[in-house]
Computed example of a mutant assay.
Amino acid sequence: MRRKPDSGAERTPERGPVGGSSRGRGAGRWAAGLTAAAAVAFALVGPGVTPASAASGCPGHQVRSVGFATGQLRVYRSGQYVCAVTLAKAPGARRQMSVVLQARGARPVSDSGRFTRLAGPVKVRAANRCVQAVGAISGRKGVSGWFLC
């Protein structure tokens, strides 16, 4: 059975601002105020000021950073785990990127492919073990060497 096109005469009333519930007049003002507050907070803090782990996707604190011609390898530690990412110096076009992380005596864990900004994160359990990380972008690479021994 086909429906008639809507003539506009019998339209349903518009729903409120949040999930279809009508919460009254104050809800719209509250949401607008919250958006304005977020914009002010962003302006005060600045676009590049975020925790390092938020930018990389790795939890914990940064323990090693290796810069190379096309990017940077960053290694983070959180408890018994170590995490690594490779970040491009100039994000943009897709290019071959990879990150490899290995705990001594264990198999390496890697992520590689054609990415625009970062490869990884990769994570290994490294309780009382040395780790080594390698990051590469477009044929250039950075190697951390064995550390956390």
Rank of each mutant, 00 (worst) to 15 (best):
38 A>C: 11
94 R>N: 13
81 Y>V: 11
64 R>I: 00
67 G>V: 05
76 Y>F: 15
76 Y>I: 05
49 V>C: 00
66 V>Y: 02
40 V>N: 01
88 A>Y: 08
96 Q>N: 12
62 Q>T: 06
90 A>D: 06
81 Y>K: 15
79 G>N: 09
66 V>W: 01
61 H>A: 13
97 M>S: 02
63 V>H: 11
97 M>P: 04
100 V>Q: 05
82 V>A: 15
62 Q>Y: 03
91 P>H: 09
98 S>I: 03
56 S>K: 07
117 R>G: 06
60 G>E: 12
99 V>E: 06
98 S>P: 04
103 A>N: 11
69 A>V: 06
74 R>M: 14
109 V>F: 00
36 A>F: 08
68 F>T: 04
88 A>E: 08
112 S>E: 15
73 L>Y: 08
104 R>L: 03
83 C>H: 09
90 A>I: 00
54 A>H: 15
84 A>I: 14
91 P>N: 09
112 S>M: 12
87 L>K: 10
108 P>S: 10
75 V>F: 09
61 H>I: 02
61 H>Q: 12
41 A>H: 12
98 S>D: 11
72 Q>E: 13
77 R>Y: 05
67 G>F: 09
61 H>V: 08
42 F>G: 01
96 Q>H: 08
92 G>S: 03
69 A>G: 02
37 A>Q: 13
38 A>L: 14
50 T>W: 09
63 V>N: 04
80 Q>M: 03
116 T>E: 08
95 R>S: 03
56 S>E: 05
114 R>H: 13
77 R>G: 00
55 A>H: 10
37 A>H: 07
57 G>A: 12
71 G>A: 05
58 C>R: 08
52 A>V: 06
85 V>T: 10
97 M>F: 02
80 Q>N: 14
91 P>E: 11
103 A>H: 10
38 A>V: 13
77 R>S: 04
58 C>E: 12
69 A>Q: 07
83 C>F: 11
45 V>R: 05
63 V>K: 06
46 G>C: 07
41 A>Y: 05
65 S>I: 02
56 S>Y: 09
92 G>V: 01
107 R>H: 01
42 F>W: 07
107 R>I: 03
113 G>L: 12
58 C>K: 12
55 A>I: 10
83 C>G: 07
117 R>A: 06
76 Y>S: 05
111 D>E: 06
